[in-house]
């Protein structure tokens, strides 16, 4: 190996131990530094996240009624009903079920997904 000292090319157990401990600490230091950056970034984004989550005061309420449900196309499984479950979680759950059953997701029919709370079980 070009350019490294003999003590690193053929390290003693002491040197190897010191390198191992130092390396592990450097990995922790790097990721702790990143943790601090990500945490600060998350805190800085908090106000804009809240703003997006709440409708702005005085924002106009739509006066028109929501459009009537369109009839499902022929051959489809119909509309999936979600109860206290976000679309993202529903997609995740369907993917997990398909994976567990080892079936393509388009061959499965989901009628509804409902969150069952611990106190309801």
């Amino acid at each position: 190996m070009k350019g490294i000292s003999e003590s690193l090319l053929h390290p003693t157990l002491g040197t190897a131990g010191a390198v191992a401990v130092m390396g592990y600490l450097v990995v922790f230091f790097g990721l702790v530094l990143l943790l601090a950056v990500v945490t600060v970034m998350g805190r800085a984004m908090e106000p804009s996240r809240r703003k997006n989550a709440r409708p702005a005061p005085g924002s106009p309420v739509p006066e028109t009624a929501p459009p009537a449900e369109r009839p499902a196309a022929k051959g489809t499984a119909g509309q999936l009903k979600l109860y206290n479950v976000s679309q993202r979680d529903a997609a995740l759950i369907m993917a997990i079920v398909a994976n567990q059953l080892q079936k393509p997701i388009n061959e499965l029919r989901f009628r509804s997904i409902k969150e069952v709370r611990d106190d309801e079980v």
Binding site: M1, I4, L8, L9, H10, P11, L13, A16, G17, V19, A20, V21, G23, Y24, V27, F28, G30, L31, V32, L34, L35, V38, T39, G42
Partner: peptide
């Protein structure tokens, strides 16, 4: 973000195996 710490602690094997390899006569 605290899961970064789990990503760090799971690198333990890298450095233990490094030490083991030196013990078995490999170069640094």
């Amino acid at each position: 973000p605290k899961s970064l710490l789990l990503g760090a602690s799971a690198q333990l094997g890298v450095f233990v195996a490094f030490f083991g390899a030196v013990l078995l006569g490999f170069t640094g």
